[in-house]
Amino acid sequence: MVRFKNRWFLVEFIRCETTTDGGRRPATVSSKQIWNALKDSVLLNFGDAGWGAVGGSLNVKYFSPVTNLCIIRVGRDNHQIAWGAITLLTTLENERFIPHVVHCSGTIKKVQQAAIRHNREVVGRLRARLKAVESYQPHASLPQTDDEAEEYLSRTAKEIESLQD
């Protein structure tokens, strides 16, 4: 018996519009909308054959609207099609985003570790910007104080670690 092998993508969706918070405004999209956008991208760029190859295994496991970080699972055999579809995405729900594949791995554990590391970096940059520029006003849902930042990081780490294959 052969097990089904996956590839896991850690993707950051960077907002294109210039905002006062450096593109870190919480996204107005959900996991389902990302899945639909990926499906449309695969169909547009790779046709029905591409969708037939990845459609059964494509799954959005996690999405954080605060950091715009997403974990996507797809079957290993055709992960290049999914990667291409992710890269060719330009809009999600009429908002322009640039998808940045931060990490690709064969196990969910490695992607979880990369996601936690990436969350720490993003929140650290936001905190540094908040301290450096007095006029900087991040979006209300972003952590404002050190305690809020630590609470957010521990909460998201628990959410990410609870994901299962």
Rank of each mutant, 00 (worst) to 15 (best):
T145W: 00
L163M: 05
E150R: 05
W83K: 10
I86Q: 01
I116T: 04
G50R: 13
A115E: 13
Y152I: 00
F97A: 04
D147P: 05
K109H: 14
H79K: 12
D165I: 00
N36I: 03
V66L: 14
V122Y: 12
N119H: 14
W8F: 14
I14Q: 15
L44V: 06
A149F: 04
N119W: 13
I14Y: 14
P138G: 06
T145E: 02
V101Q: 08
G75W: 02
V66W: 10
R76S: 12
A140L: 12
L89Q: 01
T28P: 02
D77G: 13
K158F: 06
I108G: 01
E17T: 09
T18Y: 10
F63C: 09
V101W: 04
S135M: 08
L58M: 00
T20N: 15
S64M: 07
K110C: 00
I116V: 15
N6C: 08
P99T: 02
D21F: 04
E134M: 01
E17A: 08
N6Q: 13
I14M: 14
L130I: 03
L130Q: 09
D165C: 07
W51K: 02
S41K: 08
V11G: 01
L130M: 02
H118I: 10
V66K: 11
G124S: 08
L89K: 01
C16P: 03
R125L: 02
I34T: 07
G55P: 02
Y136I: 06
W8E: 00
Q80G: 00
E93C: 13
V2F: 15
T28L: 10
N94F: 08
N36D: 10
I72Q: 01
V102S: 07
T67M: 15
S141F: 12
P26V: 09
V42S: 00
G50P: 05
V54E: 11
D147H: 07
N6E: 09
D147F: 08
V11T: 13
A53G: 06
K5E: 13
L130A: 10
L163T: 04
I34S: 01
S141K: 11
L130G: 06
H118Y: 02
D21E: 05
S30P: 06
G56P: 11
K109P: 09
N119L: 12
K110R: 14
L163E: 01
K61N: 10
L38G: 06
C16H: 12
R24E: 15
T91L: 01
A85R: 01
D40M: 05
D77R: 14
R73A: 01
A27W: 02
K131Y: 09
Q144H: 12
T87D: 15
W8H: 13
L44Y: 15
A149G: 10
I160N: 12
K39T: 01
D21N: 04
A114D: 15
Y136W: 09
R76I: 10
Y62Q: 05
N68K: 09
P26F: 07
V42G: 07
L10D: 08
N59G: 02
G56H: 03
V101C: 05
C104K: 11
I14P: 10
K61R: 11
A140K: 13
N45K: 03
I72R: 01
S154N: 09
V74Y: 08
R96H: 15
G50N: 11
I71N: 06
V123E: 07
G106D: 11
Q137Y: 04
T87K: 08
E159C: 05
R129H: 10
Q137E: 11
K39W: 02
R25N: 12
E161S: 04
G50V: 06
E17R: 14
